[in-house]
Nucleic acid binder design. Sequence first.
DNA 1: AAATGCGACAACCGCATTATC
DNA 2: CGATAATGCGGTTGTCGCATT
Length: 366
Amino acid sequence: MGRAPCCDKASVKKGPWSPEEDAKLKAYIEENGTGGNWIALPQKIGLKRCGKSCRLRWLNYLRPNIKHGDFTEEEEHIICSLYISIGSRWSIIAAQLPGRTDNDIKNYWNTKLKKKLLGKRAPSRRAAARANQDPSAAAAICNGAGATTAATAAHALSSSALERIQLHMRLQGLYNAFTTTNAVAAAPPQWPKLETLIPTRPLPAAPAIQPTDAVVATTTVQPNPHHLIGQTLTAAAVTTTSEAFQSDHQLDPAANNYIPGCIDQRAKLGFCPSSTGDAAGVEMNSSSMAGVFAGYGIHDELYDFLYKCESVGGLQDGIIPSLPELQCPDGGAIVGADEKFSTWTSASCDYGGSGGAGDYDLGYDQ
DNA sequence: AAATGCGACAACCGCATTATC
DNA sequence: CGATAATGCGGTTGTCGCATT
């Protein structure tokens, strides 16, 4: 026996909301609030909608100060940074982008940013559906060398984890490209770990976050790294509860409180200078990268990668060119970014992390 | 002009977590 | 303390409009 439905499916309307429904819901909530009970709300105002549907409509569309339209470079950068750090925790990411909803960000990632970063056309849903029925088609979708191994690996790893691996590899590839002429290239840096910075669930209250690994645990979020080096996302900013966000970062109509590049305003959002040494800060800082380039860290690379890649043979017409080969930190296998990631993800590449016997740990349990 | 493919976005679904009794 | 309801969240699907064939 499954879970009882939250509402009578037969009597509720589904599909797009009409302007009349929007007006009803908006007017009621603006006047009375939600009353703390979404399930009862539609009956109160005579809407033939599921309470969950009303909540979603309000949060994603009708709520004041919702931003629609194109994302700015700063917003893209924050999304990418956080996605690499924590994966598809859209609600947390959305908490850093006032006016944006998790649904918006999720859609934007899936339709635009992912392609931009991974540099290949993502298979359409139709193509993916075909691929599910035909393994050879799946390989075809993962065009390029190593498609078969990629498809195989995809069975073992969630798409989110896979994307994060690819993002890291591409960034690492760029890093190697940068360092091939640098003396430090002789000592390949440790790869940034891909562990999520916080347990999948439950997420503890902000003060309780105790990073297990300082290297993993700090996410430097730099809306524009060329303006803001070393701003860190504090654990408080990673609090999942909407209440926490609302109280600290309320989208106050009068306080349009996000001004990219403005440290004071950013502090309101939970960004604080890394120099504060906040022990609960979370970082996805690639220690070696930050150290080597004295301020040029992974997020600067990300910025360059997104917007300035031409200088290192990067994005051109949205297509990411072949990347330099990557070296496993143990000095072992030399792998190509696209071709062999499945090899080293299945092999026991040691990232020098805290995850057990050195086995690669995505930090994902999917 | 019609059919098809595709991208973008809104909305739904179901599971996990939290609150309440 | 367990059961149940409510809420939050992330993944998935439906739909629409535009581009291409």
